[in-house]
């Protein structure tokens, strides 16, 4: 669709983008301020708050945990999600409809309810340690991305190519890895990225699944904020924004960012 834009509407859109980006600019400014409290515009410039992050071992440890949990959780979700997405698209007839709904339940059920229920039944009820519970929680949280995003790219895959390979004598598993997988590469990468970023930013599930010595970075940031209100938090936030920039660069290089509006 194409139509002309009223200047007032254009001005409104510019204000919206200012509203979206100004708070992030303020965080960057506050992280550079040479004061012991958070302020903007920064008074004096220093990088000592960034150095301070590395002095606090809790930030380092939780960052490592967050990263591990995101990689393992996303990996697990792809491991069970890709076969499910494949079956849903390959054998569209014959599989019950509720199966598709089942796999998106993790986004339908409120995250905070899911986190609490996991703690109650798996961690405390069955006595599973916190760390594997955390990975399970994150793997399920991101499963819908694995099934739906990979599924979207399987939907446009021509399965007759696969049948041709098989009828020419290629074993099914080898066909999957050499014919199907390369064709849905973009979907797998997209699912991985969306899942990873969702996991690394998660609060509502992780907040229940932390224990002695195990916590994730967002939970540690919340805890730190309750005691200190210094620019350290702003500098941690800037580092997290740099992770976002990195992720966006990967998306742009592999799929193009317009992918995200589809």
């Amino acid at each position: 669709m194409t139509a002309r834009i009223h200047p007032l509407l254009g001005a409104f859109a510019i204000l919206v983008f200012l509203f979206l980006l100004a708070p992030l600019v303020i965080i960057v400014g506050a992280s550079l301020s040479d004061t012991t409290y958070l302020t903007f515009p920064p008074q004096g410039l220093t990088l000592r708050w960034f150095a301070n992050i590395f002095e606090i071992s809790a930030f380092r440890n939780t960052a490592i945990t967050s990263f591990q949990v995101a990689i393992l959780g996303t990996g697990l979700s792809l491991l069970i999600g890709i076969p499910a997405a494949y079956a849903l698209n390959r054998y569209r007839v014959g599989l019950p409809k509720w199966l598709g709904t089942l796999f998106i339940l993790p986004i339908l059920v409120p995250e905070i309810v899911f986190g609490f229920s996991l703690l109650k039944t798996i961690t405390i009820g069955l006595g599973l340690p916190v760390y594997p519970s955390l990975i399970i929680g994150h793997a399920l949280l991101v499963l819908p991305y694995s099934v739906r995003v990979v599924g979207a790219s399987l939907a446009s895959f021509d399965f007759s190519v696969e049948e041709a390979a098989i009828s020419l004598g290629c074993p099914p598993l080898k066909t999957f890895f050499t014919v199907v997988l390369p064709n849905i590469r973009a979907g797998v990468i997209a699912a991985f990225i969306l899942a990873f970023i969702t996991s690394i930013n998660d609060v509502s599930i992780s907040v229940f699944l932390t224990g002695p010595g195990i916590s994730t970075l967002p939970i540690q940031i919340l805890a730190h904020m309750e005691q200190f209100f210094d620019p350290t938090i702003a500098s941690v936030s800037v580092l997290l924004m740099l992770v976002t920039v990195g992720v966006m660069a990967i998306v742009e290089m592999t799929l193009g960012l317009t992918f995200l509006t589809k």
């Binding site: 992030l24 303020i26 930013n201 609060v203 938090i233 976002t244």
Partner: peptide
């Protein structure tokens, strides 16, 4: 997209 991919803690903190 940039704010969307930035965590909820960071965005609330702002």
């Amino acid at each position: 997209v940039f704010p969307l991919l930035t965590g909820v803690v960071v965005r609330s903190f702002a």
